[in-house]
């Protein structure tokens, strides 16, 4: 009986997800297409400053840039459907594979940030709630407020100066070894961890004031047990919702952080491509990021449903 109720529901969720993916990706790419086509001449960039007008005209014909804009747009959408974004104007390799090669480095930093948010942010938030009126709890809360206010590029330069240039503990620029991703991760994670600390603390304090918690306490549940077993599940949905939204924000912030540390992920690649007017790379990067964002929000929806005690009880009953 359960299966014929959940079956259609899963199908419907999947369909909604696909529509969202299509609309987001299509919208973003359309915006980008017209922006790029209307204000620059890719042919002139490809030929370079030394080229003659005939060279530019020839390249323009080869790329189909002499056709009407709408025809170009149709062809562009067809290419996107085949994941063909053209070749990089500089290296000549297919743009999509050039981006996908760099993607793991970025995902590593973003993934480590999310892991730190859960492994460090949640326990610190619990501690801040458990000791809300003591100096240690206040110190954690104040520290989180400060960490939320420091811009990542400022924090990044500070960490770079202290841990790499002065103390020499960590490598400064590049991405050759796993150690190279430590400072970018810390820079990126500061805001996210701080926000999770504050969310967990606020959620726990609210839950602790509710009746059912008082009942558990009266029945002799230890303070830690009450926090972890009974209050935390209620504080968790906002944290999850924040992390889903934050993932999109993190993908934005990697642009700055990767540029600062000369870390070879897709963020640095995007900025380099902009300065080189390497449009195929720009389009491929934006496409990959759009797909990632929709995928993360879909995963977030599923996890949110699983984590919500009310939804879980309904599914079990």
């Amino acid at each position: 009986m359960k299966s014929d109720r959940t079956g259609p529901r899963v199908l419907r969720a999947g369909a909604v997800w696909l529509v969202r993916l299509a609309v987001t990706v299509l919208g973003v790419l359309t915006l980008l297409f017209f922006l790029l086509r209307l204000s620059g001449d890719p042919a002139a960039v490809l030929v370079g400053p030394g080229g003659t007008l005939e060279d530019i005209e020839r390249v323009r014909r080869e790329l189909g840039l002499d056709l009407p804009l709408w025809t170009q747009y149709g062809a562009f959408l067809g290419d996107v459907a085949r994941l063909d974004f053209g070749v990089s104007s500089y290296t000549g390799e297919p743009a999509i594979s050039a981006v996908l090669v760099r993607l793991p480095l970025t995902l590593q930093v973003v993934g480590a940030t999310l892991a730190l948010a859960l492994l460090v942010g949640v326990p610190l938030g619990m501690l801040a709630a458990a000791r809300a009126r003591r100096p240690s709890g206040r110190a954690i809360t104040a520290g989180a407020a400060a960490a939320q206010a420091v811009p990542n590029f400022v924090l990044g330069m500070l960490l770079l100066l202290v841990f790499s240039l002065w103390l020499g503990w960590l490598p400064s620029y590049g991405s050759e070894s796993p150690l190279h991703s430590v400072l970018p991760t810390l820079t990126l994670a500061a805001f996210t961890v701080a926000r999770v600390v504050r969310l967990v603390r606020a959620g726990l304090l609210e839950a602790l004031s509710q009746d059912f918690i008082r009942t558990v306490r009266a029945k002799g549940g230890s303070r830690l047990r009450v926090l972890a077993r009974h209050a935390l599940p209620n504080a968790f949905p906002p944290v999850l919702a924040f992390l889903v939204v934050d993932s999109a924000y993190l993908l934005s912030s990697t642009v700055i952080v990767e540029q600062l540390y000369a870390y070879d992920g897709i963020g640095k690649q995007l900025v380099d491509a902009i300065f080189q007017r390497d449009y195929p790379i720009v389009q491929a990067t934006v496409f990959v990021v759009a797909v990632l964002v929709v995928a993360v929000s879909a995963v977030g929806d599923v996890l949110g449903a699983l984590a919500d005690p009310r939804v879980r009880r309904e599914a079990a009953g």
Binding site: V28, V245, L251, S252, S253, V286, V289
Partner: peptide
């Protein structure tokens, strides 16, 4: 939902 900085850049 879309990373704004990427579009702005």
């Amino acid at each position: 939902a879309f990373p704004f900085l990427v579009l702005a850049i």
